[in-house]
Nucleic acid binder design. Structure first.
Length: 330
DNA sequence: AGCCAGGCTCTCG
DNA sequence: CGAGAGCATGGC
């Protein structure tokens, strides 16, 4: 980029800077939060959680830098350490990166009121104690949440995972650090320049290619700016997003939850969510979208977003447990 | 082998 | 309006 107006401190011009200490509102567990973000894999999309370190390539002022976060302390007294690597990481960029990491890991979110509200809930009460300190992690942007959601529409989680991984690896911006390759989430330009055949070869249907390229176009127009959308109310966001081709109620609610951190979002159209609610609260009977929404809004008023995060977390952990892969971590 | 999977749009009664 | 077809990959 360009010369700095003033020298900031101990950082070098490039490479690794001195670590930044971050605070989180307790209880906070990096292990649970980052694991949830990566679906309990080492890598998922543009997120990585490996060896107790959460990492992701951030794009600050159009320049990529690798953020790595590790934890010390306990959920009730959490301490976090953020390391940034990249060319020309100025003090200003360090501050922006720290803010971005705090947003993605929902560091400032307080779980207390939610935990109190559901402590006697026969299912969620126990789930919150098992996953003590899980904050609802966020996507890198509204644009990223939309693209990821559309890839996942209708198909199974496993199928979606492999397509999402291909999209990020093939079209994402590479960033090499200590011999390891990381990828920033593909920029809108990359999705548009890729061409339909290329995107189809990654496993997307022709329809989804149109949707995703349409969204990339919206992003380039500046119609998906985080700042602007985060100032809208839920209904306003849903209306704006569902006017985009390929974005329905489920996807819009997903964005509210995953990109905007709305505590009262609820993707009631989600099959997995419907099945778990039916299993845990309706004696195994199938419930549809209307019933799931009515139930959740009444029972978890104001906390449906947290409830959704914990329900999904429960399902992901149970799937691992059934395969004997759940590793108990710090 | 065939059917379903963390939806959505388009088409047709 | 409500219902149905079609879509891509991966797992059972």
């Amino acid at each position: 980029m360009m010369a700095l107006p003033h020298a900031g401190g101990a950082q070098t011009e490039s490479g690794m800077d001195s670590p930044i200490g971050l605070k989180a509102t307790p209880p906070f567990s990096l292990h649970l939060t980052a694991s949830h973000q990566t679906y309990y894999q080492r890598e998922f999309g543009a997120d990585r959680y490996d060896g107790g370190v959460y990492s992701r390539v951030l794009v600050i002022d159009d320049a990529p830098c690798l953020a790595r976060v590790s934890a010390h302390g306990s959920p009730d007294a959490p301490g976090l350490r953020l390391e940034l690597a990249g060319d020309g990481v100025s003090p200003q960029k360090r501050a922006l990166a720290a803010r971005e990491v705090a947003r993605i890991l929902s560091l400032d979110v307080s779980l207390g009121p939610f935990y109190e509200a559901v402590q006697n809930d026969p299912f969620l009460g126990e789930a919150t104690r098992q996953m003590y300190g899980l904050h609802p992690p966020q996507t890198g942007s509204v644009y990223e949440a939309l693209v990821m959601a559309i890839i996942g529409q209708q198909i199974s989680g496993v199928a979606a995972r492999s397509i999402r991984a291909r999209v990020v690896r093939e079209l994402g911006t590479p960033f090499v650090m200590e011999g390891q390759e990381h990828f920033a989430f593909p920029r809108p330009e990359a999705l548009l320049q890729a061409g339909q055949e290329k995107l189809r070869s990654l496993g997307l249907s022709g329809r989804k290619v149109e949707y995703i390229q349409g969204i990339a176009g919206k992003a380039l127009e500046g119609a998906l700016e985080q700042q602007q959308i985060s100032e809208m109310g839920n209904d306003e966001v849903v209306e704006a997003l569902t006017s985009i081709r390929g974005v329905g109620q489920w996807t819009a609610q997903w964005v509210l939850l995953r990109a905007l951190g709305r505590a009262d979002a609820f993707p009631g159209g989600d099959l997995v969510l419907q099945r778990l609610i039916g299993e845990m609260y309706f004696g195994g009977r199938a419930v549809g979208e209307k019933e799931a929404v009515a139930f959740a809004r009444e029972r978890w008023a104001g906390y449906t977003g947290f409830a959704t995060t914990y329900l999904f977390a429960y399902i992901r952990r149970r799937a691992l447990q059934e395969r004997g892969e759940l590793v108990q971590g710090a």
